[in-house]
């Protein structure tokens, strides 16, 4: 992949967690249903800790492949 392209897609992956928390998580602000025992907002915010790691790992792989980490 081109350097510029990997940089661009890596950045998109980095913005996804911001969208998940700042834009989407407010929609989960209700008392039920309990998901895995947790209120919706707590479930969403916890899930996205894991998904954030995955997004950033994707960005890392892209940048590595684009030779951006030398």
């Amino acid at each position: 992949m081109e350097k510029d392209e990997s940089r661009k897609y890596a950045l998109v992956l980095g913005i996804i967690p911001w969208v998940a928390y700042v834009v989407i998580s407010p929609a989960f602000n209700k008392p039920e249903p309990l998901i895995l025992g947790m209120p919706p907002l707590m479930f969403w915010n916890t899930l996205w800790l894991i998904l954030t790691s995955i997004c950033l790992y994707g960005a890392y792989k892209l940048e590595l492949g684009g030779g951006l980490l030398e």
Binding site: G14, I15, P17, W18, Y21, V22, S25, M42, N45, T46, W48, L49, T52, C55, L56
Partner: peptide, 10 residues
Amino acid sequence: IGYGALAYAF
């Protein structure tokens, strides 16, 4: 819980 993830992404 949220801001840590945001900070790391930044």
